[in-house]
């Protein structure tokens, strides 16, 4: 197809689609997602706005008409949100989640970039194997990988034994149940998410650009700063997004590796729900967490849009 009308043509071809049982193809996943994804969120929103007593199980959503809607609006109860803002614990948990997630993202980037760059610079025939090596841990159980660090970081654990054996420390490091342990766990668990998008952009990087820069007199350092990093930016943004967002809401890592003073919002939600059985409060925490997550989402979209496709 001629270049000028290519995009238009694609759209038109889509419209002239010949998949006949069309409505079924769309309706099935659509209905599923409406029922098991959107509807539950509306329920969370509703429970977050109802008072503690009424929301206890068995809770049954009623929807009988607009009169009901009006009653619903009148019955809105901001009690949970008042609690949320009234108690500094929740605000601190949000802030500390953001801080830990941001620190983890930065460290992950610092480790992932050299690794991705080395992978992309490796001989072509090694690259598929290297790629599998990096992806493989991602396929093995997340829970087990976090658990593996418990054995390493615990007092008198593998790390202590190793460092003591090397004569580097006298006292146990006592890393377990600290924020450092949480950071290590996060960097370790999310490393593949950062490496893959960066590797993908670096792998596509045209080597002749670097040769051209060298030909024009750029030193290796200059080439790296002026060519490699700018062109890898889309991958860096994507990687940071993929690490930062799940890290904010993380539960398993702070629960297993963190201590009582490691405040993270995912853990707070879990505790409110399972230990305190306060469903409205847990729902309100969830709603606010979603709002917090909207920030990196918008930032990412803004950055990603600036980049050429």
């Amino acid at each position: 197809m001629e270049a000028g009308t290519e995009t238009l043509d694609k759209r038109a071809r889509g419209r002239a689609s010949w998949l006949r049982p069309r409505w079924l193809v769309l309706a099935l996943p659509y209905a599923w997602l409406l029922a098991f994804f959107l509807l539950p969120f509306l329920i969370v929103l509703r429970i977050a706005l109802s008072d503690t007593a009424r929301a206890l199980p068995p809770y049954a959503p009623h929807w009988t008409g607009w009169a009901e809607a009006w009653n619903f609006l009148q019955a809105l109860d901001l009690e949970s949100f008042t609690t949320l803002f009234g108690d500094s614990l929740y605000l601190e948990a949000y802030l500390s989640s953001l801080r830990i997630a941001a620190t983890a993202t930065l460290i992950t980037l610092l480790i992932a970039f050299p690794l991705a760059y080395a992978m992309a610079s490796a001989p072509r025939r090694w690259q598929p194997a290297l790629l599998i090596l990096v992806i493989l841990p991602f396929w093995t159980s997340f829970l087990i990988r976090v658990y593996a660090w418990m054995a390493i970081l615990r007092p008198e654990g593998v790390l202590d034994a190793l460092l003591r054996g090397l004569g580097l420390i006298d006292e146990p490091l006592a890393l377990m149940n600290t924020e450092t342990a949480v950071l290590i766990g996060m960097v370790y668990s999310y490393l593949p998410f950062m490496v893959l998008p960066i590797y993908t952009t670096l792998e596509k990087l045209d080597r002749s650009l670097l040769e051209a820069a060298a030909d024009l007199g750029a030193t290796p350092f200059r080439r790296f700063v002026s060519i490699v990093i700018p062109l890898a930016r889309p991958g860096i943004y994507a990687g940071c997004f993929l690490v930062f967002v799940p890290a904010i809401g993380e539960f398993v890592i702070p629960d297993l590796l963190g201590g009582p003073e490691t405040l993270m919002i995912g853990k707070v939600l879990w505790t409110e729900f399972f230990s305190n059985r306060d469903w409205p409060l847990a729902s309100a925490v969830a709603i606010l967490l979603l709002l917090v997550l909207a920030v990196p989402l918008l930032v990412y979209q803004r950055f990603a849009r600036k980049e050429p496709a």
Binding site: E2, G4, T5
Partner: peptide
């Protein structure tokens, strides 16, 4: 015709 002249369409 040149690209975009409508011949393919």
């Amino acid at each position: 015709g040149p690209s975009g002249c409508g011949k393919t369409t």
